[in-house]
Design a protein around this nucleic acid. Sequence first.
DNA 1: TGTACATCAGTGAACGCGCGTTCACTGATGTAC
DNA 2: TGTACATCAGTGAACGCGCGTTCACTGATGTAC
Lengths: 198, 198
Amino acid sequence: MDGDKAYHHGTLRRTLLEDAAVLLNEGGQDALSLRALARRAGVSPRAPYRHFADKEALLTALAAEAFAAFGEALARADAAAEPGRELEAQAIAYVRFGLEAPGRFRLMFGPRRVVADEELALAKQGAFGVLQARVDVLAGANDDSRAQAVGYWSLAHGLTVLFLDGRVRDELDGSEDEIIQRVTSATLRVAQSPQSSR
Amino acid sequence: MDGDKAYHHGTLRRTLLEDAAVLLNEGGQDALSLRALARRAGVSPRAPYRHFADKEALLTALAAEAFAAFGEALARADAAAEPGRELEAQAIAYVRFGLEAPGRFRLMFGPRRVVADEELALAKQGAFGVLQARVDVLAGANDDSRAQAVGYWSLAHGLTVLFLDGRVRDELDGSEDEIIQRVTSATLRVAQSPQSSR
DNA sequence: TGTACATCAGTGAACGCGCGTTCACTGATGTAC
DNA sequence: TGTACATCAGTGAACGCGCGTTCACTGATGTAC
């Protein structure tokens, strides 16, 4: 199970990124060090530098992967949703994605990374695009559709953070999905499909 | 200007908390160390321990103060708003509070602090209460008013984070306040007063 | 199939650093009489 | 108003630690012929 990779690890890059996500979720940013990562992978402290220029580069790569996975999760939820309930499904997927791995989520939206990483920018843009596309279909890509997309994104994002903070559970009862549906439909103008609210 | 306090600093506790906020906003959590704080205050590394049990205690105290200030800012905005536009005013105040001092904002909603601090819990509860109170007035404290309050809070919170992330400015033009108003009214069901939307 | 050799993916020891925290201490301040 | 003394708010040197990163290196792998 361990050590069968001998000298040439073979998948160090992957391993490092996966373990980084684990450390982030377990102990937050403070717990994530290159040395800890190397230790987990059973490899010398120097080894990670073969795959990443420095710590920042690893974090950026991880954030980019996270946004890609995020976009896919949103798209999957959208595709699987009952017609007319796609936005709600995306909101649920959004919150779940955050709660599933809080450390990763905080990395994604944390203090500014190196501004110039193109892969990261694209992945981010892609994830937002999934939501924007659905809003455009429902709202007809009018003047307000961008503002609406930002509003939906904000609501889902804020709800996630409030869940992580414990705030939501202090205020509302019920399962996660129920709460999300309830908050969404109580708050949003165009919450669902043609057949209006509730 | 400096050093006129001589040996007994006199206001070290205050100074430390204020400088901590500055460091947080300038360089993020990583830049905030007790030693750096002591240096800024022109005091030995040991001195802060006279006022805080450890670093965590200082952070907790800072977060508690921040939530108190936050609640006051929301209440002030609410009081100064045109009748019927209080929620919008609170949302604007919310976002401004975050953009004004991102480091402080991230501390407030960052990874869980020591759960058991009562002062922090109360200050947090108080800030949320300001919003909840306004929702109750407008919505009549019905079944959904708690969910609505959570929804508003989420929207404002998410919008703040998206602003901080640069996401909003990538998508929408206009001044901060305009954007907030636009997103709010495009998205929210009960955006304003009786006279309905727009 | 065998061998020479370039390249790739690691080793392991060492560096300097700033950190949180603790030590035994001392100078300034405030209070009791 | 003066003095003794407790207390308060700081000093400054030291600790051990884990970190990011660099050094010169070496064993494993893949390719050309």
